[in-house]
Design a protein around this nucleic acid. Structure first.
Lengths: 341, 341
DNA sequence: GATTTTTTGATTTACGTACATCAAAATTGG
DNA sequence: CCAATTTTGATGTACGTAAATCAAAAAATC
C-alpha cells in the first residue's frame, strides 16, 4: 500500500500538521524537523496523491490560449481543438479561455501578456511572435512563476517551459529530401511558396529546405520565394505566374498555408507536366490533392496533439510534476496517400 | 461550479442515498424514481468526479500486459516502456503486470487468458496471435466484461475494445510508394525481408506492399520473401545470399526485426551498388544506418505511445468513460535522416 | 528564571464520492 | 385493512489531502 501523510508523520515522529507544513512549504518548521520529515518522505517513497490534493483544494486550472487572429485552415483547426478541450474541462478540472491577438504584432502580444499577468491564470499557451520584447515579457512572467508554453511557433532563447510544436528546420530538411529523392536524377528548378518570411516557422522551414537542397541535390535550384501571405488567391496568382514564366520548374514546396490556391494553380497549369509537390498541413483540400496525385506528400503537425500536450504540460508545471518528454514531443507527420488517417 | 451528487439529490427531490443507488446501479429503486434521478443528472449535466470516486473506492487498476517472449529490439523496447509505465503506477493508480507467452503459440496464449480470467484484472493488453481460438476466448472475456486491447498486433474480427498499434497494411503501402518513388525510373528487383509469414503484422505489411507495387510500380518486381525469423544472423545470411545471387536487386524492404543482420549484409555487399532500402522500427542500429545512408527511410511505431495509449484506453473502458479517438490513434512514423527524434 | 517568540501537536472541517446501516415511509398482496 | 415487502431517507464513516484553529511545548531572549 502506498504511504500516506499519516505514515510519514509516524515515521518522522512528528504530527500530521508538521508534515503538512513541510509538504506545502508553510512556515513555522525548524530546519532539523523539516529534514526529518523530508527524510521520511524519501525513505518511504511518499508521493502526494494529486487527485486527493486537488479534491481537497478544490483546485481548477485556469489556462489561457493566446492565438493569432489568422484566417486559415490551420488556425481554424487549432481553435476547434481548443474548443474540444474546453468540452473536456469538467473532467480535467481545467478552465480554458482563448484570447485572439492580431497576427505578427509583437506589441499587441506583449499587451495581452501584460494584462494576463494581473489575473492569475495557472498557465499560458501562446503562439509566439518572435520578437525581443515578447521574449522579455515571457522571461519576466516565467520568473514570476507563470507556466508558459509556446504553441506551434516557438520563442527560442526565452525561458518558456516547453514548446508544443514541430521542429520546423527538420520539417524543411525533410521536405527537401523527399522532393530531391522523388525527383531522382531530374534536373530543374524548385518553386517555394511561403506565407511570409516574417514568421519564424516559415523562415525555419525554408532554412532547413535550402540547406539540404544545397548539400545533397545540387541539380535542383531554388527559385526566389513566393510570399503568398497564407492567402489562397495570392498563392494562386503567384504559383500560376511562376509556372507560366518558368518551364524548368520540376517541383514545388509549399511551406505555409493558402494551399487551396496552390492546388488550383497546379491543376490548371500542370496537366501537361509532371511536377513533384510537397505541402504542409493536412486539410480537406490538401488531402483531396494528395489522393488525386496533385500533391505527392504532406507534412503535418497535429493540432489536437499540440493542444492536448500544451494542457498536460501546463498542468504538470503548475503542480510541479515531471513531464514525459517522449509523450510531449510533437512529431512531424509525413503523409503519403497510403497512410492518411 | 460543477454539480455534485447533492445538487442532483436536491433537483430530483430525493435523498443522497437514492442518487447513489442510481449512479452505482444498486438495487432497490423504483423505476419512476430512477427516471427522476436520471433526468436530473442529464439536466444538470452532472459528471461523476472520477478522481473523488477513485479515492473513495480506493480503486486501483490492475492491468496485465501479455507479450510474446521474442528476443528482438522492438519487444525489448516495448518491455522497457511498460517498465516505465510501472514506475508511474503510483501516480496513475495502476498496478501493471506483464506475462510472457511463447511467441506464435495460440494455445499458450489461450491458456494464459484462461488463467487471467480467474483473477480479476480490470484490463488486459495483449500482443495478439491471430488464431480462431484466440478470437474465441477474447470474445468470451469481452462478453464477461473484461476490457481488452490488442497491442502492436491486432485481432481483427474479434470484439477487443481497441487496437493500440499501427495500420500495417497502410505501412506496407507507404513503404512501397516510398521505395517506388525513391527509385524513380529505375527498373529491377526488390528483396523483401520479413520475420515470419505466420505473424499477422508481417503478412499485412507485405500485402500492402505488394498491392501498391503491382498497381503503381510495374517496373519493379518483388522477389520471393526472405523469412529471417526476426533473427539478425539468419537475416544476414538470407540478404547476403540474395544480393550475391541476384545482381538485379535495386531495393530492399525489411518489414520485420533482425535489421542488425540486414545492415551488416548491406554494408558488405552493397558498396558497389546503390540500393534503396526501407526498414521498420527505429533502433540504435537502424538509426545509425539511416544516418550513414545505408537505409533510406525507417517506418516506425512508437512503443511508448502504444503502451501509454493502451493504459489510457483500458482505464477509460474500466470506468465506462469515452476515449479521444484521435489521441489514441497510433501513427506510422516515417523517419528520414532529417527528422529523427 | 521569567518572558517572548518560535515551533509543534492535536483536532476539526472540507472536498466529492462510495458504501453500509437502520429506520421510516410507501407500496403491494392477501 | 393489516401484514409483508419494497423503496426511500437519514446518517455516519471512509478515502488522502488541505487548511485552519488553538493549545502546548520548546527554544531564544533578556
Amino acid at each position: 500500500m502506498r504511504p500516506t501523510v499519516h505514515d510519514i508523520a509516524a515515521a518522522a515522529g512528528v504530527s500530521l500538521a508538521t508534515v503538512d507544513r513541510v509538504l506545502n512549504r508553510r512556515p513555522g518548521v525548524r530546519h532539523v524537523t523539516r529534514e526529518k520529515v523530508e527524510t521520511a518522505i524519501r525513505e518511504l517513497g511518499y508521493i502526494r496523491d494529486v487527485a486527493a490534493a486537488n479534491l481537497a483544494k478544490g483546485r481548477t486550472y485556469p489556462l489561457v490560449f493566446i492565438l493569432p487572429a489568422s484566417d486559415n485552415s490551420f488556425m481554424h483547426g487549432l481553435n476547434g481543438e481548443i474548443r474540444q478541450a474546453i468540452l473536456r474541462s469538467a473532467a480535467e478540472r481545467t478552465d480554458i479561455r482563448t484570447v485572439e491577438v492580431s497576427a505578427f504584432d509583437p506589441a499587441a502580444l506583449v499587451a495581452v501578456l501584460e494584462e494576463l499577468s494581473q489575473e492569475k491564470p495557472c498557465g499560458v499557451a501562446m503562439v509566439a511572435t518572435d520578437a525581443p520584447e515578447v521574449r522579455a515579457i515571457v522571461d519576466r512572467l516565467v520568473h514570476a512563476g507563470f507556466p508558459i508554453v509556446t504553441l506551434v511557433s516557438d520563442l527560442t532563447g526565452s525561458l518558456r517551459h516547453h514548446y508544443a510544436g514541430v521542429d520546423n528546420i527538420a520539417a524543411g530538411r525533410t521536405a527537401a529530401r523527399l522532393l530531391g529523392r522523388f525527383l531522382g536524377p531530374r534536373k530543374g528548378e524548385i518553386a517555394v511558396l511561403a506565407g511570409s518570411m516574417l514568421v519564424r516557422d516559415h523562415r525555419e522551414r525554408l532554412e532547413g529546405f535550402t540547406a539540404v537542397m544545397a548539400e545533397e541535390f545540387p541539380d535542383l535550384s531554388i527559385l526566389p520565394v513566393l510570399e503568398g501571405r497564407d492567402d489562397p488567391e495570392i498563392a494562386h496568382m503567384l504559383v500560376a505566374g511562376a509556372l507560366a514564366r518558368n518551364a524548368g520548374i520540376v517541383g514545388v514546396y509549399s511551406l505555409g498555408a493558402g494551399n487551396r490556391g496552390l492546388i488550383r494553380a497546379l491543376k490548371e497549369k500542370a496537366v501537361d507536366r509532371t511536377l513533384t509537390v510537397i505541402a504542409h498541413e493536412l486539410t480537406t483540400y490538401t488531402r483531396a490533392a494528395l489522393i488525386d496525385n496533385t500533391i505527392d506528400a504532406i507534412l503535418n503537425q497535429d493540432a489536437g496533439h499540440e493542444v492536448r500536450s500544451a494542457i498536460r504540460v501546463l498542468k504538470a508545471k503548475a503542480d510541479g510534476l515531471p513531464v514525459i518528454d517522449a509523450q510531449e514531443r510533437i512529431r512531424l507527420d509525413i503523409f503519403l496517400k497510403d497512410n492518411l488517417p
